[in-house]
Design a protein around this nucleic acid. Structure first.
Lengths: 151, 151
DNA sequence: TCATATTAGTCCGATATCGAACAACTTAAG
DNA sequence: CTTAAGTTGTTCGATATCGGACTAATATGA
């Protein structure tokens, strides 16, 4: 069946805004991280705390929807900085388990504080609930795009 | 004055969704572009048609809010593929002017059609007006972030 | 006019993303 | 138990992003 194509203008405006916002937020975050630690590293540290510790790299790659090669690289940076530890997986000789270190935990906690403070003026300048209100629709859009992708 | 920091959970969830959506939309677009042409190249071609032709690289860099070095790279790819032409700026010997070629125009038009078609099932699966409705709030968020940045 | 500051663009090196190919290991089939 | 297939992770090469340093040209100001 042939569906009606959505208005390209809306499509490109929407994803243009999303792309710029992604770029801006990434820059804001990275400006508050130590040298050598980028947004991907922070995201992984945050995930290890918020979700779970001690899982294999591939599980992280799937959680972030990036190729495993990308996760290999991100983790190698984190390991070099002693922000995570890689241990062998006792249940599978092919695999490793990723653990966050105390240093990694401290870095993540500090970054959360710094970024929160950096966004305070922004939150104050926006209508209350604007950010909160965007989340459900963005989440729905993202989920539908995921489904459309695998299909 | 010390403002109240926004809820970090909302902040990170919001920008997490935005980051994933940016990644997904980029992948969808690039899947419909010829080999060697990436999302940055398409964005520039689109801009040259939608906004204006015959402007210097620095103007494009500012429009996309990327460093001029990034634009140099993007344009060099486009030029190598004969999708744009660089001519000297008769009014300023330091500068060049970027013109889209017929080949570039054709590529962009075809991509718009293909991407529109690719998003048809997605648009059909979403509540009507969801994408349209997101734009104003995202735009406001983006503008406030821009202001906060330069400040 | 001439020296200095500024501006446009490029080049280089570092990091990020990602597909292809590969090695090590595990699992399934017979 | 042995072979074939699948899984995990790494390496490599290509493209993208971006800061710093550089060149060429223009603008400023004494």
């Amino acid at each position: 069946m042939t569906q009606k194509a959505p208005d390209p203008t809306v499509l490109f405006e929407l994803f243009n805004e999303i792309g710029i916002l992604s770029q801006l937020s990434r820059a804001e975050l990275e400006a508050r991280l130590p040298h050598g630690v980028g947004a991907p590293q922070f995201s992984v540290l945050n995930h290890l705390i918020r979700v779970q510790d001690g899982r294999p790299p591939l599980a992280l790659a799937k959680a972030f929807q990036v190729p495993k090669t990308t996760m290999t690289h991100t983790l190698s940076v984190l390991e070099k900085l002693a922000l995570v530890e890689m241990r062998p997986n006792p249940e599978d000789g092919r695999s490793k388990l990723v653990y966050i270190t105390d240093k990694g935990r401290a870095l993540r906690d500090q970054a959360i504080l710094d970024v929160g403070a950096a966004f305070a003026p922004l939150a104050a300048a926006l209508p209350a609930g604007l950010m909160q209100g965007l989340i459900p629709d963005l989440r729905e859009l993202r989920k539908k795009m995921d489904e459309n992708r695998s299909a």
